[in-house]
Write a protein that binds this DNA or RNA. Structure first.
Length: 578
RNA sequence: CGGGACGUAGCGCAGCUUGGUAGCGCACCUCGCUUGGGACGAGGGGGUCGCAGGUUCAAAUCCUGUCGUCCCGACCA
């Protein structure tokens, strides 16, 4: 490719709307162009990167025994009604009507479609197991798309679905996919952690996410992990042992009574007023789960993990209650307390979920729905309510590993892939069954396995960049190398560059010749920004028969004869692609 | 959906307070000069100032409405 003809425009400045590294870099280097929020054109360089990732995914999925197909992007409502998700999925599902006024949607995921395809074709146990996948654009009408390709509305995804006759088969395929994913991300030059996670809206029981660990702002997930064993989990799923279970502190309160606690609207204010540690306070939080109030109780030095709470009440939608909703709840129960003084006492008929931390608390402080008052020296028996215990606690750094008891650490991660055990979540309601050896029918045992292709590309930038631009891993770089003649009007320089370029092309290397009549600085800046893994500069030293070879990743550079440079380049690239 | 901000050339921005012939840098075109880390000079092309009303002799500027975009909170590959 000649740089002078390449359809790319690099910019002097970062796009003003970009917040995170990958968005800034990909925008400035001319890889992507925004059309609408979360909707981007993949420019030629970007498309080359995406195709590289797709091909790695294809090779590894095929090697793992999966078969590629391609399902429709536009889907009819009827299938979504069969699975029950037309009602449940919410506004992220982009709904539209065709000319006959029929309800349709843009595919955010394809469980319904693949299940309907499978049930028409997979009739016998003899045909199972099967794993089918596709690589395609998905559309999810995210509330707030952001971070460029990391959270788009339209994005490219690989989604795979497995069908087995029993759980054992699913377990085997689940492991098989986990191994394939490891190989895929390794080949993309990405270090990932496989972490336990919540199974979310797609449903099912067990799931793991593949996280690119990053120290940039783009990591939207907190990952807890143990250095002593293999435990790691997304914060929405992580569990821990408490480092401190010391809760009976009789020295503070030796009798149960109501005390005045004026203007203590926060835990901090209450601690300060009563001169007590926050571990002595039972915190009561009001949430709205599927439009109904739920009270969550937890030791006040800990925070509630909303996904866990949602699972504890089997809800699909949860958020903290507004002060108006709290006021409404109060008046319904005959109280008039303001937030800060809410408590479980007298809340009969409201679902109350207590975190495990509550179990051990004794002689604690709790709100009793009277403004400017708290009950001190309280015990659970004083509250006169029925508690449902569940782990709804957000793990904090320093708490202990649930497996081995050593301290847990936290880091940021970008989720680039996930694997789910679906079981019969879709096959049962959609009556997708096979016939066993005895002639009986059973629903398939299903699994699903996703990889965000475009997100993986962005995550690779987050993991490989410096102040000058992108440092693509060779395996997914748009081109392997760039040849830069410093002065194209110098016949020897240009002739040598041209020769190197052709030799590399003939060797199957994806190479760009920067034949633009620009100053060296411009070409170097662009080469660094675009992120070619290797650069060969043909400048003044060509009069001594030498060119300069430079590695983008390490900054390492060396002078060679043109023939040596070609040879080393070919060798390094081939080694890297193994 | 709530809270904040912004819409002026492909990109980044000034002008608006106090109405009076639309500007700057980058990018683009021509010529010259230059050629190892985003040179320089001269000339040039490109904008219904998001859109619609209103006020006014006169609106990018003031008023009203509307659409769009970005940032902070609840989702997920």
């Amino acid at each position: 490719m000649k740089m002078s003809k390449m359809f790319v425009q690099t910019l002097r400045e970062y796009p003003s709307d970009a917040e995170v590294i990958s968005h800034k870099m990909l925008g400035r280097a001319g890889y992507i162009k925004k059309l609408a929020p979360g909707i981007y054109t993949f420019m030629p360089l970007m498309w080359r990167v995406l195709k590289k990732i797709e091909n790695i995914v294809r090779e590894e999925m095929d090697r793992a025994g999966a078969q590629e197909l391609l399902m429709p992007f536009v889907q009819p409502k009827e299938l979504w009604e069969e699975s029950g998700r037309w009602e449940v999925y919410g506004k992220e599902l982009m709904r539209l009507k065709d000319r006959h006024d029929r309800d349709m949607c843009l595919g955010p995921t394809h469980e319904e479609i693949i299940t309907s395809v499978a049930r028409d074709s997979l009739k016998s146990y003899k045909q199972l197991p099967v794993n089918l996948y596709q690589i395609q654009s998905k559309f999810r009408d995210e509330i707030r798309p952001r971070y460029g390709l990391l959270r788009g509305r339209e994005f490219i995804m690989k989604d795979a679905y497995s069908f087995d006759i029993d759980e054992a088969g699913l377990d085997k395929e689940y492991k098989n996919m986990a191994q394939a994913y490891k190989r895929i991300f390794d080949r993309c030059g990405l270090e990932t952690k496989m972490v336990q996670s919540d199974s979310g809206a797609i449903g099912g029981s067990v799931s793991h996410e593949f996280m690119v660990i990053t120290d940039t702002d783009a990591g939207e997930n907190d990952v807890f992990y143990c250095n002593s064993c293999d435990y790691s989990a997304n914060s929405n799923h992580a569990v821990s042992k408490l480092a401190d279970r010391e809760v009976d502190r009789k020295e503070f309160f030796n009798e149960t009574k109501i005390v005045d606690t004026p203007n203590t609207h926060s835990i901090e204010e209450l601690c300060e007023f009563l001169k007590i540690p926050s571990t002595l306070i039972l915190k009561s939080l009001v949430y709205i789960a599927d439009k109904k109030p739920v009270i969550a109780l937890i030791r006040a030095d800990k925070a509630v993990e909303e996904t866990k709470l949602m699972n504890a009440v089997s809800g699909v939608d949860i958020r903290i209650a507004s002060s108006a909703e709290i006021a409404e709840l109060m008046s319904e129960k005959g109280f008039d307390a303001v937030p800060g003084f809410i408590g479980p006492k007298g809340m009969n008929g409201i679902k109350i979920i207590a975190d495990e931390t509550v179990r051990d608390m004794k002689n604690f402080v709790v709100g009793i729905n009277q403004t400017d008052k708290h009950l001190v020296g309280a015990n659970l028996s004083d509250l006169g309510i029925e508690l449902n215990y569940a782990d709804i606690r957000l793990v904090q750094q320093g708490e202990l590993c649930p497996q081995c008891g050593k301290p847990l650490y936290v880091t940021k991660g970008i989720e680039v892939g996930n694997i789910f055990k679906l079981g019969t979540k879709y096959s049962k309601p959609m009556n997708a069954v096979y016939t066993d050896i005895e002639g009986k029918t059973h629903p398939y045992i299903m699994g699903c396995y996703g990889i965000g292709i475009s997100r993986t590309a962005a995550a690779a930038v987050e993991a490989h960049y410096d102040e000058y631009g992108i440092k693509w891993p060779v395996s997914i770089a748009p081109y392997h190398a760039v040849i830069v003649p410093v002065n194209i009007n110098d016949e020897l320089q240009m002739h040598t560059a041209q020769k190197i370029y052709e030799d590399l092309l003939n060797a199957g290397i994806e190479v760009v010749l920067d034949d633009r009549d620009e100053r060296a600085g411009v070409k170097f800046k662009d080469a660094d920004l675009i992120g070619f893994p290797y650069r060969v500069t043909v400048g003044k030293t060509i009069t001594e028969g030498l060119v300069e070879y430079k590695v983008r990743e390490t900054g390492e550079q060396e002078k060679y004869t043109p023939e040596q440079a070609v040879k080393i380049l070919i060798q390094n690239i081939k080694n890297n692609l193994k």
